[in-house]
């Protein structure tokens, strides 16, 4: 399986080459085009209950699509819904990543997707909800973001502060606390940041350069109010 990002930037597409018999799973609706040798199947990853919990708990889609090169080698073109960069990670079996609910684009068959419960404070204040996706296993994992993706590399003990709505994915060797953006409650909200995550290394944190929630609020002001 080989993957390549076409048109890097705001409107990228991922091309995945599959050998005969190989398959990948992708977010439902992610497929743009594919070779005629590819079969598209719909699958509830993790069984019915797993899919159900993913749907209701993380807000992710109930079905993932499986693209299988069942009749010979072929290629698949995948794209996310929102404009923004795509990053391809190679999971090695030990590195695990937590991914915010809209961040998953596609994964190789060896990638295991779980929805995992967060702690109360992270769930309430982290802006990711109580359940997020945990990616483990081995193989290619494509994540997408809103805006550009920026990688923060943290050495052991190194700290970094991230606005919670800009998070895309972070490795499970990191840890983070939710805190107010400034020392005062009022200033925390008037500064426009509210809560932030204080990450502590070692590990990687992927962030997106735009905040989907803020963008939505910005667009809303131009939408005429219907009676």
């Amino acid at each position: 399986m080989k993957s390549e990002i076409l048109y890097p930037g705001a409107f990228p597409m991922v091309r995945v080459e599959l050998a005969e018999g190989e398959h990948i799973k992708a977010e439902s609706g992610a497929m743009v085009a594919c070779s005629p040798t590819i079969d598209i199947e719909s699958k509830m990853e993790g069984g019915f209950l797993g899919a159900l919990s993913r749907k209701f708990l993380t807000g992710e889609k109930f079905f993932f699509q499986t693209l299988r090169a069942s009749r010979g080698a072929g290629e698949v073109l995948l794209a996310p819904t929102v404009p923004g960069e795509v990053v391809v990670l190679d999971l090695d079996g030990v590195n695990e990543y937590m991914v915010q609910k809209d961040g998953f684009l596609a994964g190789a068959e060896g990638v295991v997707i779980d929805s995992q419960m967060q702690s109360m404070s992270r769930g309430l204040l982290g802006g990711e909800g109580f359940f997020i996706l945990k990616m483990s296993g081995k193989g290619m994992l494509a994540l997408n973001s809103f805006g550009a993706i920026h990688k923060i590399e943290l050495k052991p003990g190194q700290e970094y502060i991230v606005d919670n709505s800009h998070l895309v994915a972070w490795s499970t060797t990191t840890s983070y606390n939710i805190e107010k953006a400034t020392s005062g409650w009022v200033a925390s909200f008037t500064s426009g940041e509210g809560f932030v995550c204080r990450f502590r290394g070692p590990g990687l944190v992927y962030i997106q350069s735009r905040n989907p929630g803020s963008f939505g609020a910005w667009v809303r002001q131009f939408i005429p109010v219907s009676q």
Binding site: D92, G93, N95, K155, P156, P202, G203
Partner: peptide, 18 residues
């Protein structure tokens, strides 16, 4: 041969060496 841990240090990759 399956890695079961991650090692971090200055000269190793930031995501940790399996």
């Amino acid at each position: 041969s399956t890695p079961n841990a991650l090692c971090f240090s200055e000269e190793l990759p930031p995501s940790g060496a399996p």
